[in-house]
Every structure is written in structure tokens, then in C-alpha cells.
């Protein structure tokens, strides 16, 4: 509820802002490097297949050169006692939630960057370091990054993390959809290692069809909802499960792209420099009036 009212607040502000500027809030401008290819890739996460072995966490760390313990140690299930978030030392984590249909089979959900089709981080990045690539990945250029952490604030899934522990040259870290691997025709590390193929890598459009087919064929097994199909304008990573994942692992988000609101405010306020010019004109006017008044008092 709180989030809703916050959103509502932003919406109203946007309308007011654009009304001042004399512009419609609907004219959202696309972020500069946001390529949205028809056959962009994605991953379908079938949480009914996921067994919570956390091999994906190990594979991710190994592929990204993050220090890790041996794979065998990952079978430790005590980590599920706490909810974890991706951070600089783990770009993806698996959390476990109770399954009310069958208490013996908890629901395991892997989380990482969702690779939005309309990424808020791309929009929020003031130096244009972030970009949505043709294959669906949302990546960033560390050389351009100035460490402002706007991306962290903008992300509706709160995914990007920052190396706070580094004093010199700290970097932003998040899942990069194994861009370096997919570039050379390999699968993302997590998809490759998953023993039950709970992660299916393929063209996003095909994945939606497959997800629908699975739900249709097994209406008792699946909750009829594909998380990520429409969330914040659609994401490359999509989830199906035996329960509504919006109640357990993910936030309830609308289907409007996340940058829509923030961009409308930014672009609205600064469009054609009308608001700054009018603000200065107003201030100048006040100055002129007070000066006139002083002059008349002196006389």
C-alpha cells in the first residue's frame, strides 16, 4: 500500500511537472542505448523444478571470478534460514519459501538482475554507462561509471550493488547475464550448471509460449501467472511457480516501464528550458519589484 501511494505521488508530481512545462506526461522518451530486439534472449525459471541446490550460485561466482568455497559445500541448507539479497559477493542467490500445498517441497526461487526490457538503471544512469543489449542483457561500462549509485535507487528490484568495502575505485556489481559468455555462443553459467534445467535459456517470445503451455498442461501444478511477462514493461528473466510469487519472492509491480515516471518528470521539467527560464524570470520579477519598492520608499 505504501508503495502504491508513493507511486501515486510520483504520478501526480509528474502530471503537475509536465503541466507546468505544458507537455503531456505520456510522451516517454526511450533511453539512449536501449535496443529492444524482437529475438532478444531470456530465461524462464520454473520454480517447481528448482531443488535449491544452489549450484547456480557457485557457477556464477566461478564465472565472474568471485572467490567461493567448493561446490560440495553448497548443499548446506542452513543458509535458507535467512532471506538473502544479491550483493557484490554473490550476483545471484536462491531463497527458500514455504509451500502451503506441500510442506515437504518448499519453493526455491533464484534471484538476480531481471534484465528489464525498459531498464530503469539505463534511464537513471547520468553518464550513460548502462545499456540494454540486443541479446537482452542489461550491462554497464565500469570505465564510464562515476559511482553515483542512481542505478541502485532506480532499480525496481533493488539489484545493483556497490563495493562499499573498497576505498579505492569501488564498482557497481550485478548479474550481467554472462554477457562475455553468451557473446561467444556459451550459455549463461547458471543455466549451464542447473541439474534440473529449472532455468531454460532461449528467445523470450518462445519462453512465454513454453511457460503458457506448461501451465495449460498442468493446471494443478502451476499458479497461472508468468512473473516478468508484463512487470515493469516486461523482463528477460521470467518465473513460473506453484504459487503466486508476488506474495513471496517478488514485489508487486505494475506493467508500466519503470523509467516512464522518472523520465517524465526529468524530461518534463527541463523540456525546452521553460521551467528554469520561467523560474528565473519570476525571481527577476520579484527582484525588480522589491527594488522598485525600495526606490519609491527612499524617495
Amino acid at each position: 500500500m505504501e508503495k502504491q501511494s508513493r507511486r501515486e505521488f510520483f504520478k501526480t508530481t509528474a502530471i503537475v511537472g509536465s503541466a507546468i512545462a505544458g507537455l503531456s506526461s505520456n510522451s516517454t522518451k526511450a533511453a539512449p542505448k536501449n535496443i529492444l530486439s524482437e529475438d532478444r534472449m531470456g530465461v524462464l525459471v520454473d520454480t517447481t523444478a528448482c531443488i535449491g541446490c544452489r549450484s547456480c550460485e557457485w557457477a556464477c561466482k566461478t564465472a565472474h571470478g568471485i572467490e567461493t568455497q567448493s561446490l560440495e559445500k553448497y548443499s548446506d541448507r542452513t543458509v535458507f534460514k535467512n532471506m538473502r539479497r544479491p550483493d557484490v559477493n554473490a550476483l545471484t542467490v536462491v531463497n527458500e519459501y514455504a509451500n502451503h500445498q506441500n510442506a515437504q517441497l518448499p519453493t526455491d526461487v533464484k534471484i538476480q538482475c531481471m534484465h528489464c526490457d525498459h531498464p530503469a538503471c539505463v534511464s537513471a544512469c547520468i553518464v550513460g554507462a548502462f545499456s540494454k543489449q540486443e541479446n537482452g542483457s542489461v550491462i554497464w561500462d565500469t570505465k564510464k561509471c562515476i559511482g553515483c549509485r542512481y542505478c541502485m535507487v532506480a532499480c525496481p528490484f533493488q539489484v545493483p550493488s556497490f563495493e562499499y568495502n573498497k576505498a579505492i575505485n569501488p564498482e557497481i556489481k550485478k548479474c550481467d547475464f554472462c554477457f562475455e559468455r553468451t557473446k561467444v555462443g556459451k550459455l549463461p553459467a547458471c543455466v549451464e550448471i542447473c541439474p534440473v534445467e529449472a532455468l531454460t535459456y532461449g528467445p523470450r517470445n518462445d519462453l512465454i509460449k513454453i511457460a503458457r503451455e506448461r501451465i495449460k498442461r498442468n493446471p494443478d501444478k502451476y499458479f497461472d501467472y508468468i512473473y516478468g511477462e508484463y512487470e515493469v514493461g516486461g523482463t528477460s528473466w521470467m518465473y513460473i511457480g506453484n504459487q503466486d510469487l508476488r506474495n513471496v519472492a517478488f514485489p508487486k509491480l505494475g506493467d508500466k516501464p519503470a523509467p516512464g515516471v522518472s523520465e517524465a518528470i526529468q524530461h518534463g521539467i527541463f523540456a525546452y528550458f521553460v521551467p528554469p527560464v520561467s523560474l528565473y524570470a519570476l525571481l527577476g520579477g520579484i527582484m525588480w519589484i522589491t527594488k522598485n519598492r525600495k526606490n519609491s520608499e527612499e524617495e
Binding site: 531443488i51 550459455l187 543455466v191 549451464e192 541439474p195 534440473v196 534445467e197 531454460t200
Partner: peptide, 16 residues
């Protein structure tokens, strides 16, 4: 695992 038809799980996944 990297294949054209992704509608069915691959062999490793099918076993597991």
C-alpha cells in the same frame, strides 16, 4: 543443453 527445441527438458534435467 544448448539446443533448438527448448520445450522439453534436456536429458540431464529429465533424469534428475
Amino acid at each position: 543443453r544448448k539446443r533448438e527445441d527448448i520445450s522439453k527438458p534436456d536429458l540431464e534435467a529429465a533424469y534428475h
